[in-house]
């Protein structure tokens, strides 16, 4: 059994999914968080429910929904013509990973953005800085530990994704077989050696991710404590 292919594919799928999720999650968290009007808040609440739904949905259900959307007759899949081009490709695995990891990124980004000292934002406004400049120069750097933690969680969720990926991308060795799918196949075929190796790699990756998440939590907690104590920046 070739183990390099699923490892490289998993890193490619999870890496791309994390980048997309980070951009999308940060954008959505910033936009929905800034909504002030009553109709806007109601709309934001509805959209937030849709974003968070995959967190409570069984992954196979999410996969089935994606199958309906991305299939040749689905609203998204039909744009690719009758070939059903998106399904059973590594891009389908990326889409599945984005959908299931977006809630984690969104929640982390939202928490990180709301923890930024509002006086820093207000000060930047009175200095005359544009909202865009404030977002990139003040908000994102101050929220960065939380955003980085969200990205780590999103990467972890993407690399461990199984159910939804199996539904939309299948389990094609060398094409769509990621680490969890390869592990499943190895166990099913009694290839304990391959299964153990994949397990070891996953554990090592998980530890690295946990270290990043804990670092980001410590940084966020430290900056919050520093702010509440009224020292440094405040």
């Amino acid at each position: 059994m070739n183990l390099l292919d699923p490892i490289l594919l998993s890193l490619r799928v999870a890496g791309l999914a994390t980048v997309i999720t980070a951009v999308l999650g940060l954008f959505l968290a910033a936009r929905l968080n800034a909504t002030r009007s009553r109709p806007g808040r109601i709309l934001a609440g509805g959209l937030e429910s849709v974003i968070l739904a995959p967190m409570v949905f069984p992954p196979t259900m999410t996969g089935y929904l994606l199958l309906l959307l991305l299939g040749p007759n689905g609203p998204v899949g039909s744009l690719w013509g009758a070939s059903g081009g998106l399904l059973f490709s590594w891009l389908a695995a990326v889409i599945a990973s984005v959908v299931v990891s977006l809630p984690l990124m969104y929640q982390s980004a939202k928490t990180a953005l709301t923890s930024v000292d509002p006086h820093c934002i207000a000060a930047a406004r009175t200095l005359g800085a544009s909202e865009r400049r404030i977002f990139w120069k003040i908000t994102v750097p101050l929220a960065w530990p939380g955003i980085a933690g969200g990205m780590a969680l999103a990467f972890a969720r993407a690399i461990g994704e199984f159910g939804a990926t199996l539904m939309v991308a299948g389990n094609i060795p060398g094409a769509t077989q990621t680490i969890p799918l390869a592990l499943y196949s190895a166990v099913e075929s009694g290839n304990t050696h391959a299964a153990n190796l994949l397990l070891g790699i996953t554990v090592a990756l998980s530890f690295a991710i946990v270290i990043v998440v804990r670092w980001s939590e410590r940084r966020t907690a430290a900056s919050r404590a520093h702010r509440l104590a009224g020292g440094g920046s405040r």
Binding site: H119, A122, A124, S130, P141, L142, S233
Partner: peptide
């Protein structure tokens, strides 16, 4: 941004991730 009313907060609201020079340069640019 359009009012040009400078504001000094009780808690200073300095940008903690920037040096003193960067804080002031940010204001100069803005």
């Amino acid at each position: 941004q359009e009012r040009a009313a400078g504001f000094v907060f009780q808690d200073t609201a300095l940008f903690p991730h920037m040096s003193a020079r960067e804080n002031v340069s940010f204001a100069v640019t803005a």
